[in-house]
Simulated scan of single mutants.
Amino acid sequence: MSIDTVYTITSKATGGGRDGQVYSDTGQIDLDLRPPKEMGGSGEGSNPEELFSAGYAACFLGALRATAEQSGVKPPEGTEVKVTIGIGKDSSDGGFGLTAAIDVTLPGLDQETADKVAETAHSFCPYSKATKGNIEQTVTAHV
């Protein structure tokens, strides 16, 4: 794969990782991180999975709009993408792994078209391509 890079961004983590801070070079991200309650933390901050789910959802929606329009389908008003990221023990190596559930809402389209639009976006989205084969992913289209 050859990438013609048009944009780069750098972020920095300090402190204890999941219990620390993250900053982007632009200053747009300046957050305290805390483990979620489900992982023994206070939950009083963001966490890597929350940040990943937000970035993935925004990227996937952009990919969906681009690929739908290229195929002649105008994304309807109310189109949205919800990405749920899960983290848990990876039984294969004792470490941790991620899951991604991508829910695409395309109100007013027929189910077959919505499924095709969602799958095409999944094959185009940089986040989907980066994680393909590395995390369990599901894509579900709703009309």
Rank of each mutant, 00 (worst) to 15 (best):
K132T: 03
G15M: 01
K129R: 15
C125L: 00
V81R: 09
S53C: 09
A66N: 10
R65A: 13
S128A: 00
G78K: 06
I3T: 10
P48T: 01
L61A: 07
K74I: 09
E77C: 01
F124D: 03
S92N: 14
E112C: 06
D19M: 08
L109E: 00
Q28H: 09
G97I: 06
F52N: 03
D115N: 15
N47E: 08
V22W: 01
V81D: 08
M1A: 15
S53M: 05
G95E: 03
S42M: 05
D115A: 06
D115C: 05
A118S: 14
G133Y: 10
I29R: 07
E80P: 06
A63F: 00
L109C: 01
L51V: 12
D32F: 08
L109R: 01
G108S: 09
S128L: 00
P75W: 04
S42P: 02
P126F: 02
F52D: 02
N47F: 07
S24M: 06
T120C: 10
Q70I: 01
T26S: 15
F124K: 01
T138M: 08
P75H: 05
V139T: 13
S71N: 14
R18P: 07
G86Y: 05
Q111P: 11
T79G: 08
G88P: 12
P48L: 01
C59E: 04
L106D: 02
K129I: 03
P35E: 10
E38W: 06
G95H: 08
T79S: 14
A118R: 12
V6T: 14
V143Y: 01
C125G: 00
Y56F: 02
A101D: 14
T99Y: 12
S91D: 14
G95M: 07
L106N: 02
Q137A: 08
I85F: 01
S128G: 04
E77G: 04
G133M: 09
